[in-house]
């Protein structure tokens, strides 16, 4: 049941529990319990909202920053990652295989604010060897959702 619940709410976390239970063909109480358990176990870490900020008047800039770091003895990459992810403006931090070590996704109000973070906070960390900042120009698809206006149903209204 877990997988079914997660697959469903990953796309629509606002679903009514009763409806979800009907659709999965299980008891409502069982769904509620399972979800409470998953919240406790941190399998469900939150119920966020997909927002296309570009359609609002709020200015937002997102940057992907490649960071090369020196891993620390006994800690690997974890402690440097932690120093970075504790900044609230940092949206995501991933340890990456390949040409660099950490992928940091940063959100700011302006180019200047993001650049300042990189030059003042990130580059100055002892174990950071180098950074490369890529600004996002346009989001086409995010979290499996195409951000463009949804397509119209082009099927004929009645077919055999």
């Amino acid at each position: 049941m877990r997988e079914e619940i997660l697959t469903f709410i990953e796309k629509n976390s606002r679903v009514d529990l009763k409806e979800l239970a009907v659709m999965l063909g299980v008891d409502e109480v069982a769904v509620a319990n399972e979800m409470a358990d998953m919240e406790k176990e941190n399998v469900i870490c939150g119920y966020h909202t997909m927002i296309d900020w570009s359609k609002t008047s709020t200015e937002k800039v997102t940057a992907l920053i490649e960071v090369r770091v020196t891993p620390q003895r006994g800690q690997g990459f974890d402690s440097i990652a932690e120093r970075i992810y504790k900044y609230p403006e940092v949206q995501s931090v991933y340890l990456i295989s390949g040409g660099y070590d950490l992928m940091v996704i940063l959100e700011g109000k302006s180019l200047r604010q993001v650049s300042q973070f990189v030059s003042d906070k990130l580059s100055t960390l002892d174990s950071v060897l180098s950074t490369a900042t890529h600004f996002i120009l346009k989001k086409y698809k995010d979290h499996g959702t195409i951000l463009d206006t949804p397509e119209k149903d082009e099927r004929m209204l009645v077919t055999p």
Binding site: R155, M156, L157, V158, T159, P160
Partner: peptide
């Protein structure tokens, strides 16, 4: 039935076989 439906601009449908 299709002919009647297609006259109606803002109808929603549960009539599709695809």
């Amino acid at each position: 039935f299709f002919d009647i439906v297609s006259e109606m601009k803002d109808a929603i449908s549960l009539g599709v076989g695809e």
